[in-house]
Amino acid sequence: MKAVVTKDLGWKYSGRKRFAIEHVDLEIEENTFVSIVGPNEHGKTTLVSCIKGLIPSSFHGVWRGSVEIFGQDVRKLSAQRLAQEIGFVFADPEAQFTSMTVEEELVFGLENIGLPLGEVKERLDWVSQITMIGDLLDKSPYEISGGQKQRVAIASVLAMRPRIIILDEPTSMLDPLGKDFIFEILTNIKKETEMTVIVVEHNIEQIAPLSDVMILMYEGSIAKSGPPEVFFENSDFLIEHGIQPPQATAFIDNVRKLGDYNGPLPISLEASIPVLANILDHRLGGKG
């Protein structure tokens, strides 16, 4: 089933001359991991805000086209229904805190959708365990570290067990250790849940191996999309559009241009090692 379908989607913020996104046609299958990449100010956040329904409900502007979530028009869904269908993690975790203790933060959304108290408790325990924030429950979300804040932000959305989860640059404000931790959580979400995950991310190196589909947003439109092996072909195009492919992928792509390899591109360092070993075997074997 299609989780998200956009048709000729466009949005212009009030007071701006240009459309932030225009003519966006997109289909995302259920239970896939999609990453949206591209330079700043090229429409990534606007696109995911339209999918979540934040646009047009929370912004003034001009809307064109349509967005459907599991076959339903987002503009016709109430905030409560949307919260159950789609979770949204903002780039700045502090921007999404709505409560004064971590515990209240985690249960806030669950209370809003009227879950029975027993289930609220069950989900609170589950999500605190998988994001390892059990010892923070009594604290203010403002008193904890940046990495912990983002874990709380993700946990508060995960607790609602939405069918789609959108993360808008979840690692942009974190140190390397904090970033690694978030990618570990993303890996767990992919492995252990059936959620459709949409991540806006600049860290290509770490997001690419997780992705089923990658989308490049450029000047408000989709410039390129596809599975990572296909997406990273023609790395010159990506570099021209502000995207640096993973180093291992770029290396093998260069080797491929030399004519020594014509298989699929590896996306991670781990995946590139056997490819490189094969190439070397082939070369050394040929020469011997």
Partner: peptide
């Protein structure tokens, strides 16, 4: 700026 951010966050989590 926070007024906008918090109202977006509330909407995102089904607040009425």
């Amino acid at each position: 700026r926070r007024t906008d951010e918090i109202s977006n966050a509330l909407y995102a989590r089904g607040y009425t």
